[in-house]
C-alpha cells in the first residue's frame, strides 16, 4: 500500500505543478520559454528558503522531476559547495548541481541529432 501511496503523491504534486504551468500559458499568455525560466527561478527561491525540501520529502519524484526541482537542486548544490569550499563554492555550486542533467541533455541531444532523421510533422496530422 505504501508504494501505491508514494506513486499517488508523486502523481498529484507533479500534476499540480504542470497545471500551474498550463494556467500561466492559458491565462497570462506567457511563452513556454518564460514559463520554464520562471519555474527554475521559483525553484531556486523556494529551495533557498528551505520550503521545497519538505515538498520533495512528501512527493518524491513529483517534486524533483518538474523544473522547480531543478531549481531547488541548484540552490541545494550551491549551499553544499559553499559549506565545503567556502567562497569558491559560489562559482562551482550551480554548475556542479546541474552537471548530470545538462551533460545528459548535451550528449543524448547530440547523439539523437546524428542518428535520427528529421521528422515530417505534416504527415502526423
Amino acid at each position: 500500500m505504501d508504494i501505491l501511496l508514494e506513486y499517488l503523491k508523486a502523481f498529484l504534486v507533479g500534476g499540480i505543478l504542470c497545471v500551474i504551468g498550463q494556467l500561466l500559458i492559458d491565462i497570462t499568455k506567457l511563452t513556454p520559454a518564460r514559463i520554464l525560466v520562471s519555474f527554475v527561478v521559483a525553484g531556486v527561491i523556494l529551495g533557498a528558503l528551505d520550503i521545497y525540501e519538505p515538498v520533495i520529502d512528501f512527493a518524491g519524484a513529483g517534486a524533483t522531476v518538474p523544473l522547480t526541482g531543478f531549481g531547488n537542486m541548484l540552490a541545494k548544490g550551491m549551499r553544499e559547495a559553499i559549506d565545503k569550499d567556502g567562497f569558491i563554492g559560489i562559482f562551482t555550486g550551480g554548475f556542479s548541481a546541474c552537471a548530470a542533467g545538462v551533460c545528459a541533455a548535451i550528449v543524448f541531444g547530440f547523439l539523437v541529432s546524428i542518428i535520427f532523421k528529421k521528422t515530417d510533422r505534416t504527415l502526423q496530422e
Partner: peptide, 19 residues
C-alpha cells in the same frame, strides 16, 4: 539556454547571500 542562464544566476545570487 535561458533556463540555464537564469537558473545559474539565481543560484549565484543565493550563493552570495548564503556566503
Amino acid at each position: 539556454g535561458p533556463v540555464i542562464v537564469y537558473g545559474i544566476l539565481a543560484a549565484f545570487i543565493y550563493g552570495i547571500i548564503y556566503y
